[in-house]
Design a binder for these strands. Structure first.
Lengths: 189, 189
DNA sequence: GTCCAAAGTGACACTCGTGTCACTTTCTTT
DNA sequence: AAAGAAAGTGACACGAGTGTCACTTTGGAC
C-alpha cells in the first residue's frame, strides 16, 4: 500500500446501508456516498466499476452476514428453542428486510453478472439452511406435515415486514406474531 | 369539448399500472407512457403537473377501487364466509401489493400535497373497514381476543407478498396460508 | 364559413447523475 | 532523495429524463 486509504470497506458498506435505507434505491447517488465518506466520487470508481456493482456487492455482503447468523440455529437443541432463536434473529435485523425490495431494483449491466447470480442464489441458500429446521419439526410431530416447507418459511420471513402502524410495543408485537404462526388466530375448538 | 381526446383516464391508468409493474418506479418515464398511449409527452403535461402527481393519482384510484371491493365483505354473513371472501379478494389482486413498495418511493413535491395525504390515509381507512370484521370475530369467540387487531390484519395482508419461489399451485398455496393463519403451523396438542 | 377553446405537438432549455481520465498527493521501497 | 505504486481529485463529456411553451390541429357553436 503506497498511501493510506481514507475509508475502509466496512465504512463504505455502513454508509451505503444508511443511504439506501434513507433514500431508497433511486435516491442513492455516488455523490451522496462520496460526501458521506468525505472523498471524491472518482475515488469510489477506483474500487467499483459502477453504482449497481457497488450496491450488489453491498447486498451480497449483507445477506452473507445474515446467513452466518442464521447458521447458529444448529447450536440450539430442540424444536421450540430453535423456533425462538429464528424469530429473534429475524426481528433483530429488520433493516435487512427493508433492503430486499431495494435489491430487486438493481439494474444489472450485461457484463459482470457473477455478483448478480450470487445475490439471486443467496435467498435459496438460506431456505436450504432452514429446511432442516422445518423437516425436523415435522418429523418430531411438532409441525403440520401437510403444509409445504416454503409456505412456512415464507410466512415466517414475511412477518417482519408487517408495518406496525399503531406502534404496538415490540415485545407484544413479536409475541403476537409468534402466537399466530404457532397456533393461528382462531380459538381452538 | 372542442376536440376528442386520444386517450381516456382509464386507458391512462391501465398503462401506468402496466409500466409500473414492469419497470418499477424509477423505470417509469413520461416518454414510456406517452409512447404506449401514442401521444406526445406534452399532452400528458396538460393533465398532470408532473410525474409524481400522475403516479400519486393513479395510486389513489387503485387503492380506492380495492377498498370498494373490500366493502363487499359486509354482504356476507357469518365469520367464516367473511374470512374466505377476504382471502379471495386479497389474492385476486396480487398486483396491488406489488404497487405498495412502489408507492413508497414517490417523491412528493413541496406543493400540491393533498393527494399525498390522501394516499397515506387510505391504508388506515382500509384498516377501519376491516376492524369490524375482526371485532365481530372476537365477539363471536372465533378469534383470539388477546391478539391486537392490527397484528391480525397485518398478517393477513402481508401474506400475499410471500414469494412462491418453488411454484406451488395457487390453490394449495392459498389453502396453506389460510390454514396457518387460522390454526397455525404447530400440531395442536 | 368563422371563431374559439380544448387537445395535441415537438423543439428547447435545464438539471442531475454517471463514468472517465489526466493529473496530483502521499507513502514505501531501494 | 529518487522512483514508483496506490489513493485521491476535479473538470469534462455525455445521456437521459423533466417540464415548458409557442404553435398547430380539430371540431362544435354561432
Amino acid at each position: 500500500m503506497a498511501r493510506e486509504r481514507k475509508f475502509s470497506t466496512s465504512d463504505l458498506f455502513q454508509s451505503v446501508k444508511h443511504i439506501l435505507l434513507q433514500h431508497g434505491y433511486d435516491g442513492f447517488t455516488i455523490s451522496l456516498l462520496a460526501d458521506r465518506l468525505e472523498v471524491s466520487r472518482g475515488a469510489l470508481y477506483k474500487y467499483y466499476d459502477n453504482k449497481d456493482e457497488l450496491i450488489t456487492q453491498f447486498m451480497v455482503y449483507e445477506m452473507e452476514q445474515f446467513i452466518d447468523e442464521l447458521k447458529e440455529i444448529n447450536s440450539h437443541t430442540g424444536f421450540e428453542p430453535k423456533f425462538s432463536f429464528l424469530m429473534e434473529t429475524i426481528f433483530n435485523k429488520t433493516e435487512l428486510h427493508q433492503l430486499i425490495p431495494i435489491a430487486k431494483q438493481i439494474k444489472h449491466h450485461p457484463d459482470g453478472k457473477e455478483n448478480k447470480d450470487k445475490l439471486e442464489k443467496l435467498p435459496l441458500e438460506m431456505y436450504r439452511y432452514l429446511q432442516d429446521f422445518i423437516s425436523t419439526g415435522k418429523k418430531e410431530g411438532k409441525l403440520k406435515s401437510h403444509i409445504p416447507d416454503s409456505v412456512m418459511l415464507g410466512m415466517i420471513f414475511q412477518s417482519v415486514a408487517i408495518p406496525n402502524h399503531f406502534g404496538i410495543p415490540k415485545a407484544e408485537w413479536i409475541a403476537s406474531i409468534k402466537d399466530i404462526l404457532s397456533d393461528g388466530m382462531f380459538v381452538s375448538r
